[in-house]
Design a protein around this nucleic acid. Structure first.
Lengths: 187, 187
DNA sequence: TGGTCAAGTCAACAGGTGTTGGCAAACGCT
DNA sequence: AGCGTTTGCCAACACCTGTTGACTTGACCA
């Protein structure tokens, strides 16, 4: 049966997923144990296995993610950098899935692979639309990724004091021109 | 005895350290096991404990690192970005210690702390010397770190294809202006 | 040559991991 | 009410981890 009928266990499933995201984001893949996740979700560890198969399956489900990049077609080409950086800021702060993905991607190849496809499939098209040379969109998207991920790494993971303490507005003011240049400057 | 006399066990110590760096760089802190490191170094796991106390002590020894930033006092202020980016490129490629540090810092707080002090203590002074407002040197150094570490993350760890395939010259050409701006542009 | 100490080996421990199968209760349906 | 299915818990397995202590070997010096 593949019907969309809500099952009785859906709340448990959701609780597991929420706890998993939290633990993966805080501890990374290997240090986040199934036992700890189950305890957070107030259920038995064996339930995790029943619903998600194994630890990798659980991570795959917890790391489902959409960047939800805004529609760029109605804004000035000069505002692309600022718009994108602002959006990423929201996305990083509001959802810990990206953080879980980043922490896990450093040691888990499956997570790295997901990271690659997310940025290629979602950021690539944006770059293709605004770049002066669409055939180099992938490269430009990659450069944007280095700055966005590097900032997230320093602010949320490594917690370098000057980066972690910077307020939103100032961070955006510094990063936006960089992203703008990577996307629209002549290559 | 704190004499500099070379001990008979120094070659073993060095073999352990080399194997540790390799494993930590390739697998991260938790997946690099003492048994695997000992096997690589062709010795017994217990030797690791005798010489380095425990796993954290081994990592601390293996993650000793100096950025060896070049002397900036004799180059034009406009070349600071390019010089710095070029130097980092060499440093990342020639020594896997930085990679080990980055992989471990994502889940090990001790490694993150070392990363913080390395960048604050070594990159900070450089920023202080070239920034138009030395009191904000730390912030500028932090921004440089976001771009440098983000590039290393995407190229060596996540292996985002467009970033991993970029050749040296092109990467430097893209990153240098960013670093230059973070260091010397008006705040 | 005999003795002292470092260098190295071996086997084991205690604890934690992902994962499995069996069993009890709750539920939904006819 | 009675039955099959779902949901959940419990105990255990097999494995791997860091770490320890006792023992053997070898080098160096008096």
């Amino acid at each position: 049966m593949l019907t969309g009928m809500p099952r009785r266990s859906d709340t448990t499933r959701a609780a597991i997923l929420a706890a998993a995201r939290e633990r993966f984001a805080a501890d990374g893949f290997e240090r986040a144990t199934i036992r700890a996740i189950a305890a957070d979700a107030n259920i038995d560890p064996s339930m995790v296995m029943r619903y998600y198969g194994n630890k990798e399956g659980l991570f795959a489900a917890a790391a489902e993610f959409d960047l939800r990049l805004p529609d760029m077609s109605h804004i000035s080409l000069d505002d692309v950098g600022r718009t994108l950086v602002t959006h990423f800021f929201e996305r990083w702060s509001g959802d810990e899935t990206l953080l879980a993905l980043l922490r896990a991607a450093v040691t888990q190849d499956a997570a790295a692979e997901r990271m690659r496809t997310i940025f290629a499939a979602q950021l690539g098209p944006v770059a293709a639309r605004v770049a002066p040379d669409p055939e180099q969109a992938a490269r430009r998207a990659g450069l944007v990724a280095t700055q966005i991920l590097g900032f997230a790494l320093c602010r949320f993971v490594l917690r370098l004091p000057p980066v972690a303490d910077m307020d939103r507005e100032e961070a955006i003011a510094w990063l936006a021109p960089t992203v703008q240049r990577y996307l629209t400057a002549a290559g």
